[in-house]
């Protein structure tokens, strides 16, 4: 259908008839450019500008601080657990949902979306209610000598909750779009389930998968609200990079706060660059619908 349309346009060439005049065109482009420059680009520029405002020495000192290094390690650790966990879930969920028909499927989809709709602060609160001293689990965990709240496990679990839908949401529409005829052919030729998945399904969805992982990772490393509620803010121990930024900022160490923020901003830029590259190369195999 799209091809047919393109042909018609090429034949009839009524471009002027359905386009805007040059002035409107220019005005719209200008509005879009100015709006995005002010709303999106300016904050990004400010991060780097402020990070270096006190000179390279302060910048390097801020990054070399033991608290920064431990925050970086914690952030990487949290992402290293949360992203694979949600990756396994995303693949399993999209296989079940895209390759099979069953009752209650759209309800299940809504449930998977739930963490998107929950405020990060509420997500954190939920785990305080679950693991706090006056919860059911809290005293039991304390007797076992297991620290969840105000320790790494709590931060990991809250992050998993927040980034829960990212991979699944990217994969499900993509795998639905591709149907299951190829897999059925593979199975009827005698391939096992795992073999079919790795040799047939995975190559078809790998770019979408990578995209989902990328977004999941960006959010896992950048989550603030939920992690803030469960962290306990122990310097050098339970502060992730975003929490460390808050502490520096409130300690009147703005340049140091922005120096650490520039690390996360670079992560964001890399994420966007890889994403743009993926889209340019593999436009067809990425899901058209994007929701986060």
């Amino acid at each position: 259908m799209t091809e047919a349309t393109a042909n018609t346009i090429r034949i009839n060439k009524p471009r002027q008839a359905i386009g805007e005049g040059p002035r409107t065109r220019f005005a719209l482009i200008a509005i879009a450019l100015v709006f995005l420059a002010l709303m999106l680009i300016a904050p990004l520029v400010v991060v780097f500008f402020e990070a270096f405002s006190r000179g390279l020495g302060v910048y390097i000192d801020a990054l070399a601080m033991p608290d920064t290094m431990s925050a970086l390690q914690l952030t990487l650790l949290v992402a290293a657990i949360a992203v694979p966990a949600n990756l396994v879930f995303g693949v399993a969920a999209s296989w079940a949902i895209a390759k099979f028909d069953f009752k209650g499927k759209s309800f299940l989809l809504t449930l998977i979306d739930l963490p998107f709709a929950v405020s990060p602060v509420v997500s954190g609160l939920v785990f305080v209610l679950l693991f706090g001293a006056n919860s059911v689990l809290g005293p039991w965990l304390a007797d076992m000598g297991i620290q969840v709240l105000f320790a790494v496990p709590g931060i990991v679990i809250a992050t998993i909750f927040i980034t829960f839908p990212f991979v699944a949401r990217e994969l499900i529409p993509l795998m639905q779009q591709q149907g299951s005829s190829e897999e059925e052919a593979a199975v009827s030729l005698g391939a096992g389930g795992w073999r079919t998945f790795f040799l047939v399904t995975l190559p078809n969805v790998k770019w979408g998968l990578l995209y989902g992982v990328l977004l999941c990772n960006a959010r896992a490393m950048g989550e603030f609200g939920a992690v803030s509620v469960v962290s306990g803010h122990i310097r050098g121990q339970t502060n992730t990079l975003p929490l460390h930024i808050e502490i520096l900022y409130n300690d009147n160490k703005a340049a140091a706060a922005f120096a650490v923020a520039s690390l996360l901003a670079m992560l964001a830029l890399v994420t966007l660059a890889v994403k743009t590259m993926l889209e340019a190369r593999f436009a067809g195999s990425l899901a058209a619908q994007r929701r986060h």
Partner: peptide
């Protein structure tokens, strides 16, 4: 590409940048 920046940039970073601006 820039449109996706708010998805990729942590909210705390956006917060201190916007506060400064």
């Amino acid at each position: 590409a820039a449109v996706d920046l708010p998805f990729a940039l942590p909210t705390a970073v956006a917060g201190i940048a916007l506060a400064t601006l």
